[in-house]
């Protein structure tokens, strides 16, 4: 009987198989190398990046994704600039799974490549590597003419969480592309500096509802979010219930007492999702002036709303009891 275990000798005849005349056979050999998990396979795979067959190169890009570190990254970088999109796309996906910061050295130069797809792929890969020396090139990439590249650059900067990047991120608030503005707002969440919170606050007035939604949510995550309490309260009148909902949630999370009434006014909105979050926020703030609103929805047709209303009343009662004790 053959061994019942998977083999660990996949590399044995690799070189020979990689030279097969038939591209399909080369592909099969590459699959085996990727599957081996043996770092010695990287060298074999690296030699295949110039294979004349695009399908083979695509397979190499996928197989290299099974590894990590500078050697595999160097081979993938060559595939990222491949003229065939299927190859480049596979390389970009593989690089995005890398975690070893040392891989950044070979990826960094591509941030300045002439093709937007390559620049995007490189920045996407750098994000998870979180290396400080990627900040400068990423900041420069914020000027890129391609919006998708700018979004990826924001990611690299945002993952690093360095206060020095705040001015650059702030300037993006006027970017012509809504995706860029949305990403920039989200990237400001970490900052402890007031200007970051102020910038997010300004985004509450953005023309795109998804940017406004992100701003309302991000203020709830930012340490200085409370500076925007009044503006968040104003957002409770936003034309989109999605934005109101996030504003309600952030106000609740920050326990803004003067928001109770304006939040209370949301409990009769036609959108049950909003009524439900309004009830929950009233509970989080637990101000006694929230009670009348909760009474109003005690018999709401939506069980989730009723449930949160009950929970909120309980919170208010508990707070009162504590104050009395």
């Amino acid at each position: 009987m053959a061994s019942p275990f998977e083999s660990y000798d996949d590399l044995e005849d690799a070189d020979e198989r990689l030279q097969a005349a038939d591209p399909a056979e080369r592909r099969v050999a590459i699959i085996a190398l990727g599957h081996s998990g043996d770092p010695a396979a990287i060298g074999h795979l690296a030699r295949m990046v110039d294979d004349p067959d695009a399908g083979v190169r695509q397979q190499v890009a996928m197989a290299l994704g099974e590894f990590d570190g500078p050697e595999a990254a160097a081979a993938l970088v060559k595939l990222l600039v491949d003229p065939e999109r299927i190859v480049a796309a596979a390389a970009a996906d593989s690089l995005a799974e890398f975690k070893d910061p040392a891989s950044a050295d070979v990826i960094l130069p591509l941030v300045k490549h002439s093709h937007a797809f390559v620049r995007m792929g490189a920045l996407r890969a750098l994000k998870e590597l979180r290396r400080k020396d990627t900040l400068k090139p990423a900041l420069e990439a914020l000027q890129d003419g391609d919006a998708a590249v700018r979004v990826q650059a924001i990611g690299v900067i945002g993952f690093l969480k360095l206060e020095e990047s705040i001015p650059a991120l702030t300037s993006l608030i006027n970017d012509p592309d809504a995706h860029v503005r949305r990403a920039a707002v989200s990237a400001l969440a970490f900052s402890h500096m007031k200007p970051a919170a102020e910038t997010i606050t300004r985004a509450l007035k953005d023309e795109d509802w998804m940017v406004r939604e992100m701003a309302a949510e991000t203020l709830g995550l930012n340490v200085n979010g409370a500076v925007a309490a009044d503006q968040l309260i104003a957002s409770l009148d936003d034309a989109f219930w999605q934005v109101r909902l996030k504003a309600v949630r952030s106000l609740g999370k920050m326990k803004i007492e003067r928001a109770v009434r304006p939040i209370g006014n949301c409990v009769t909105h036609e959108q049950a999702n909003l009524r439900k979050e309004a009830a929950a926020a009233l509970g989080e703030i637990a101000g006694a002036d929230g009670e009348p609103f909760l009474v109003m929805i005690a018999n709401d047709p939506d069980p989730d709303v009723r449930k949160n209303a009950r929970w909120a009343q309980h919170q208010i009662a508990a707070k009162k009891a504590k104050a009395g004790a």
């Binding site: 990590d68 799974e97 890398f98 975690k99 994000k127 998870e128 979180r130 924001i154 990611g155 945002g158 993952f159 969480k161 990403a183 920039a184 989200s186 990237a187 969440a189 970490f190 995550l221 949630r249 989730d304 449930k307 949160n308 929970w311």
Partner: peptide
């Protein structure tokens, strides 16, 4: 995450946890 398994993160690389349950 270290294995390369991808979770939803915000632009600060923090996990973007979502609220579905009641509390």
């Amino acid at each position: 995450d270290g294995f390369g398994i991808r979770f939803l993160k915000n632009e600060n690389g923090d996990y973007a946890v979502k609220k579905v349950h009641h509390i």
